[in-house]
Design a protein around this nucleic acid. Structure first.
Length: 347
DNA sequence: AAGGCGGGGTC
DNA sequence: GACCCAGCCTT
C-alpha cells in the first residue's frame, strides 16, 4: 500500500466521530474550520455545538450583532476569528445571497480564510483537490520524509505545500486531508508518538534515523512581555458599574472590560492612590477604594504575561455611561475579566 | 520576513 | 517552565 492508502486505512479504523464530519454543508465546514484554527478539537467542540444551535444557517449568523457573536466566542481566544467570521457571514448572506464560494480560489478571498482553511473547505465540502497543510501535516510529513527545513520559513512553507499536493489522494481529497490531520493529532503526536505500533514503522525516515523527537524544526520563539494592569471596578449606590469596549487594536479588540490603568510595575495601595489624583475619571468623584487581590493575578497569554490587580471603587453616583450590574454578563469579556466577575461577590 | 494575536492541554 | 494546537493578518 502507498502512503495515502495506508493513511486512509488508518483513518477508517481510528477516526473520531465529530459533528462536522456528518455534513457536507459548507457553512458548517467553514464554521468548524475557523473554530479549529490553532485550537484543539476538545476545546473547540462545545463552541461548534453552541454556534450551530444558535445560528443554524449563515443567515442566522449574519443577522446577529458582533457583540452577540463575540459573547458566544468568549473564552476561545484569537477573537479576530469571531469578528472575521461575522463579517464574512454578512458578506455571504447579503452580497452572495447566501451562496457559499465553492472553490479554493474564491474561498481564499474571504476574511479569516487563508491557505489552510480554503484548502480544507474546498476539499471537504466540494471535493476539490487542495492539500491542507496544518500543524499536524507539517509534523507527519517532516517525520515520514525526514525533512528538517524549518516549517515556518518561507522555503519550508512552499516545500511542504508542494509535497502535500503531490501526496493527496485525488479520488478522495476530502477523506485524505482529514486522515492525515487526524493521524497527526492522535498517533503522530508532538510528544510520545506511537512509533512502536505505527503503519509507517518500516518507511518512516525519522524513525529509522532516530530523529522523531527533533522533527519538525521550527524557528522563532515568541518572546513574552510583561504588563501591569489595574482594573477599576467602579460601582455606585444604584448597583451600576463602569464597563467599556476595547476599541483599539491589540488584544481583546471589541471585548469589554472595567476601566483599565496600565502601570510600569505592580502598584501598592499608596501608589495607586497617588495615581488617581490625575485620573480624569475619578477626579470628580468622591470614592472609597479597596484592593480585591493583594497578590497579582497573573494571566498568561502566548506573548504577554499580565500582572493584574482589581481595585474595588465605591462611589455615590456614576455617570450615565455606567451599566446595570445585572447586565454585565451580557457583554463579551476576556477570561481574565469573566473569572473575576464569577468569583467576586457583588453586593 | 517577522511579530501580534488567547486560552487550554501536555509533559 | 517549554511547547503545541484543523492559522491569519498586518507591518
Amino acid at each position: 500500500m502507498d502512503f495515502k492508502s495506508k493513511l486512509i486505512n488508518w483513518y477508517s479504523i481510528n477516526k473520531r466521530e465529530l459533528p462536522w464530519r456528518k455534513t457536507k454543508n459548507p457553512y458548517n465546514i467553514w464554521l468548524s474550520e475557523i473554530i479549529l484554527q490553532q485550537t484543539q478539537v476538545k476545546q473547540g467542540l462545545p463552541y461548534y455545538v453552541a454556534f450551530t444551535a444558535k445560528y443554524p444557517t449563515i443567515f442566522d449568523l449574519a443577522a446577529a450583532s458582533e457583540t452577540e457573536v463575540l459573547k458566544l466566542w468568549q473564552g476561545l481566544g484569537y477573537y479576530s476569528r469571531a469578528r472575521n467570521l461575522h463579517a464574512t457571514a454578512k458578506y455571504i448572506a447579503n452580497e452572495l445571497n447566501g451562496e457559499f464560494p465553492n472553490n479554493y480560489k474564491d474561498l481564499l478571498k474571504l476574511k479569516g480564510v487563508g491557505d489552510y482553511t480554503a484548502s480544507a473547505i474546498s476539499s471537504i465540502a466540494f471535493n476539490e483537490i487542495a492539500a491542507v497543510v496544518d500543524g499536524n501535516v507539517y509534523r507527519v510529513l517532516a517525520r515520514y520524509f525526514g525533512i528538517d527545513t524549518p516549517i515556518n520559513s518561507t522555503t519550508g512553507i512552499k516545500e511542504f505545500k508542494k509535497l502535500a499536493t503531490q501526496l493527496i489522494d485525488t479520488k478522495k481529497p476530502d477523506v485524505y486531508n482529514q486522515a492525515i490531520m487526524e493521524f497527526g493529532a492522535l498517533h503522530c503526536k508532538p510528544k510520545n508518538p506511537n512509533c512502536t505500533n505505527c503503519p509507517f514503522e518500516t518507511s518512516c525516515v525519522a524513525l529509522q534515523k532516530n530523529s522523531v523527537e527533533t522533527l519538525p524544526v521550527k524557528l522563532n520563539k515568541t518572546k513574552v512581555t510583561t504588563k501591569y494592569f489595574n482594573f477599576l471596578v467602579c460601582i455606585d449606590s444604584e448597583n451600576r458599574i463602569l464597563f467599556e469596549k476595547r476599541t483599539h487594536k491589540g488584544i481583546w479588540q471589541n471585548l469589554y472590560q472595567f476601566p483599565l490603568i496600565e502601570s510600569e510595575k505592580s502598584l501598592s495601595s499608596e501608589e495607586f492612590q497617588l495615581l488617581n489624583i490625575d485620573n480624569s475619571l475619578l477626579k470628580t468623584l468622591k470614592f472609597d477604594y479597596s484592593l480585591y487581590n493583594e497578590s497579582d493575578i497573573v494571566h498568561k497569554l502566548s506573548h504577554q504575561h499580565l500582572y493584574t490587580k482589581f481595585w474595588i471603587i465605591e462611589v455615590n453616583k456614576l455617570p450615565q455611561t455606567a451599566i446595570p450590574l445585572d447586565s454585565i454578563t451580557n457583554y463579551p469579556t476576556p477570561v481574565l475579566i469573566s473569572d473575576f466577575i464569577n468569583h467576586f461577590s457583588f453586593k
